[in-house]
Computed example of a mutant assay.
Amino acid sequence: MNKKIRYGILILLVAAIAIYNYTYQEHRDISSEKATYTISIPTLKKEFATNDSLAFAKYQNQTIELTAKITTIDTENKAVILDNKVFATFNDSLPKDIVSGKKIKIKGRFLGYDELLEEFKIDQSSIIR
């Protein structure tokens, strides 16, 4: 009986440590990661139109890189819209040299596709120079 209690306490301790480490793990630094996918917006649209669940499983939470033209700038929310199809948010304030109509290359974490707005969502974006 005494051994069972010791093993039970040991198992609970190991489980508690594992849960703590999983919960409080360090955040990813997307800007320093290598992009998993370098893709164009038309290709991304085509993949989601063909099979959205397969495309979502492929790109969700992955670091992607794309080049597109800035169509809208939202400085208040630190975000830009690219080619009227990609809503990209930045962690820090937007660089001052960002202007509408300019073509930029960004890298960020793919969050998903908003069917209502027909936009792809990317966060933790950074500009690649």
Rank of each mutant, 00 (worst) to 15 (best):
S40A: 05
K69G: 00
R28L: 13
F110N: 04
K46R: 14
T75A: 15
Q25M: 12
K121T: 13
L82G: 00
I98E: 09
S93K: 15
N61W: 08
P95L: 06
K3D: 10
V14R: 01
A88L: 09
A79L: 07
F56D: 10
Y24C: 03
T36C: 08
D29L: 12
D97E: 10
K85F: 08
A16N: 11
K34C: 05
K107R: 12
V86R: 02
E76S: 13
I19T: 09
G112S: 10
K107P: 02
F48Y: 15
I39R: 04
Y113P: 08
E118K: 14
N21F: 14
E33W: 02
G101T: 02
I70S: 01
K58A: 03
K58G: 04
I39S: 08
N91F: 13
K58Y: 04
Q25G: 09
R6I: 10
A49G: 11
R28N: 09
A57Q: 13
L12Q: 02
F90D: 02
G108E: 05
S31R: 08
V80R: 03
I81H: 04
L116F: 13
Y24R: 06
I70Q: 02
I106Q: 05
L111P: 00
L117D: 13
K121P: 00
T23Y: 11
A57V: 03
I30G: 01
D29W: 00
D114I: 01
L10W: 07
N2S: 12
K4T: 01
E119Y: 12
N77L: 11
F56L: 14
T63G: 03
Y37V: 02
F120S: 05
A55P: 00
F90I: 04
N21Q: 15
K96A: 14
I17T: 06
E115W: 06
L82I: 05
I98H: 05
E33R: 08
S32I: 09
K69N: 10
V99I: 13
S93Y: 12
L116W: 05
I17D: 00
G108V: 07
Q124R: 15
E118N: 14
I81K: 09
K3Y: 09
F120C: 05
S126K: 10
A88Y: 08
I19D: 00
K3V: 07
P95Y: 02
I30H: 04
T89V: 07
A68E: 08
M1R: 10
K45E: 15
L117G: 12
S126R: 01
G101K: 04
L116E: 12
Q62F: 03
G108K: 03
A79H: 08
F87E: 07
T71L: 07
A68L: 08
L10M: 12
K3N: 11
L66G: 03
I11K: 06
V14A: 15
Q62M: 13
L94N: 02
D92L: 11
K45R: 12
G112P: 05
I39Y: 05
D74C: 05
E115S: 15
F120E: 05
Y24W: 04
D74A: 10
Y7R: 09
A57S: 14
E118F: 01
L82H: 01
